[in-house]
C-alpha cells in the first residue's frame, strides 16, 4: 500500500486500439453526447445526430492521418486541423457543415469525457496525491496559475 513507485504509472499502458475499435468506441461516446446534447439544449435528436455524425467523420479522418502521415503529431492536433480545414470560408460546402454542427453544443461534448476521467482515477494516483503532500499541491496551483496569467499577460501586451 505504502510502496508507491511513480514509474508504475505507465502512460502508454493503455491498450492500443486499432482504427476499427476507435470507430466503435467513438460511436458509443457520440451516442452519450447526443443524449447530453438533447438534455442540455433545444436542439432535436435528428439535428444533434447529423451534427455528431459529421464530427465523428472528422475524428476518423484525423485518426487516419495520425496513423498514416509520417511525421508525428498527436491525434487531437490532426482532428482539430480537419475541423479547421473543413470549415474555412473558402472550403466548398463549409457553410453546410457549419450549419449542421451548430446543433451540437461544444461544452456538452466535454461532459462525458470528464465523467470517464473521474471513473479512471486509479488508486496509485490518489496515493501519489496523498503522499506528495501539501507542498506539491501548493506548487501545482501556482504552476497552473502562472501558466494562465503568464500567457494572458503576454497576449494582452501584443494584442
Amino acid at each position: 500500500m505504502s510502496d508507491i513507485r511513480t514509474d508504475d504509472i505507465d502512460l502508454t499502458e493503455e491498450p492500443k486500439l486499432g482504427l476499427g475499435a476507435h470507430a466503435a468506441a467513438l460511436a458509443v461516446v457520440c451516442v452519450i453526447a447526443l443524449v447530453g446534447n438533447t438534455v442540455a439544449t433545444e436542439h432535436t435528436v435528428p439535428q444533434g445526430l447529423v451534427g455528431l455524425i459529421i464530427l465523428w467523420v472528422m475524428c476518423m479522418v484525423g485518426m487516419a492521418l495520425t496513423k498514416f502521415v509520417p511525421f508525428k503529431l498527436p491525434s487531437v492536433a490532426w482532428i482539430s486541423l480537419v475541423g479547421i480545414l473543413a470549415t474555412m470560408p473558402w472550403t466548398p460546402g463549409s457553410a453546410w457543415i457549419l450549419d449542421k454542427v451548430s446543433h451540437v453544443n461544444f461544452l456538452t461534448l466535454a461532459t462525458p469525457c470528464l465523467a470517464y476521467a473521474g471513473i479512471a482515477i486509479a488508486k496509485r494516483e490518489i496515493e501519489i496525491a496523498k503522499t506528495s503532500g501539501w507542498k506539491i499541491a501548493v506548487v501545482a496551483v501556482l504552476v497552473m496559475t502562472g501558466t494562465y496569467v503568464g500567457s494572458a499577460m503576454v497576449a494582452q501586451a501584443f494584442l
Binding site: C30, M58, M63, V76, G83, T87, L109, C113, A120
Partner: peptide
C-alpha cells in the same frame, strides 16, 4: 482510461469547426 482520449475527440473536432 483509454476512453478519456476518445471522448475528447468530438469536442476537439467541434472546436476545429
Amino acid at each position: 482510461s483509454p476512453l478519456i482520449v476518445i471522448a475528447i475527440m468530438p469536442f476537439i473536432a467541434k472546436f476545429g469547426t
